[in-house]
């Protein structure tokens, strides 16, 4: 049986589709017997859905750096 720490780790990985099938299976088993991990997993999934739905955008680090430099130059 896996520990809660491991379960949480797999749960986080599976939000980014990086958990293997075997890991996901072990997570499912753990969730069956662990109430708090089951709650965490549900919330975590919800966060992923919200982030997908929001179509968030972010500037890349290089874009930010050029912007920062341009501001610095004008200060």
């Amino acid at each position: 049986m896996i520990s809660c720490d491991e379960a949480v780790h797999i749960c986080n990985k599976s939000q980014y589709r990086e958990a293997t099938l075997f890991e996901k299976l072990r997570l499912k088993l753990h969730i069956l017997i662990c109430k708090s991990c089951s709650v965490f997993s549900k919330k975590n999934k919800k966060l992923t859905v919200l982030c997908d739905k929001a179509h968030l955008h972010a500037l890349s680090e290089s874009d930010k750096k050029t912007l920062q430099k341009q501001i610095q130059d004008r200060l």
């Binding site: 955008h57 500037l59 930010k64 912007l67 920062q68 501001i71 610095q72």
Partner: peptide, 24 residues
């Protein structure tokens, strides 16, 4: 504090703008 603008607000403003002009 203009030197913190990029770190603090750039992404927020970017999302605000992109929702309105639809072009990155």
């Amino acid at each position: 504090h203009p030197h913190t603008w990029v770190d603090q607000y750039a992404n927020y403003l970017f999302n605000y703008a992109i929702a309105r002009v639809n072009d990155a």
